[in-house]
Amino acid sequence: MTVPRPSPPCPRPIRRALLAGALVFAVAGCGFFSEPDHRPLTVHSPAVAVPRAAECPPSGVRVDAGRVDAAMGLRAMTLTLTNCSGRPYRLNGHPSVRVLDEKGAALTGVRTVQGTDQVPMAPEDPGAHPLTLDPGESARAALYWRMAAENGTYLKVVPQPGRAAVNVRPPETLDIGPENTLGTTAWTSPF
């Protein structure tokens, strides 16, 4: 009877490369390298009026929220503002955002701030600059917060001071609660 000989072990550099590749695939599967989901929002609830994805609100802009990206207690979500009117839409600054519960009431104790420097581990805010969106063009802003126990169901978004508010229901709830800060980045160029 012939006993098969074990194959020689991989050289150390090859083993390291294989382990690094496996780690990249494992981390990518956890969503750390995933892009925010920009699909239109079509979920509705009688508690808060949310425009349908195909409708253009009287404000002339539609705001959609991407999925929550979570890593090490830091939460991130992308807001996409689309000019659905027939004329240019001007932006300059940060969105004003309020987190609402399932009945449409504002979550108490959640502070919204312009910029991200008050949210630990959040990326740097690119800063505000004037944008003009032609019909059909979009801009985006990001929201950052630290994980907490309470859940927010809706967002009330004012694109900039003096503009009409738009209600948005994200695809998932925001685990943000009392004594928490929601940081917003400025609107960035069309993508």
Rank of each mutant, 00 (worst) to 15 (best):
S7E: 09
H129M: 01
P9I: 07
S7T: 09
V50T: 12
G162S: 10
G127L: 01
G60S: 04
A105C: 13
G21Q: 07
A26S: 06
A148Q: 10
R12L: 13
D125Y: 14
V68D: 07
T132K: 09
L174P: 04
D175Y: 12
Q118K: 10
C10V: 13
C84D: 04
N167E: 01
G104H: 02
E137S: 10
I14Y: 13
C56D: 14
L19I: 06
G73T: 05
V27D: 10
G183R: 04
G183F: 04
P9T: 01
Q118I: 02
V27T: 04
A71I: 08
V68C: 08
N83L: 00
E124L: 13
K156I: 07
R87K: 04
M147C: 05
V158H: 01
V97A: 09
R98K: 08
H129C: 01
G104F: 05
V48Q: 09
S59G: 08
I176Y: 01
A106M: 02
G162C: 05
A65D: 09
P170Y: 08
Y144K: 11
R16N: 05
L19T: 10
C56T: 03
Y144P: 13
D101C: 05
V166W: 12
S59N: 09
L133T: 01
V157A: 14
P9S: 00
T173I: 03
G60L: 12
Y89F: 09
K156E: 07
P126R: 00
R169M: 11
M72C: 14
Q160V: 02
Q118Y: 01
I14D: 02
A165P: 15
Q160W: 06
M77L: 10
A142W: 10
E55G: 11
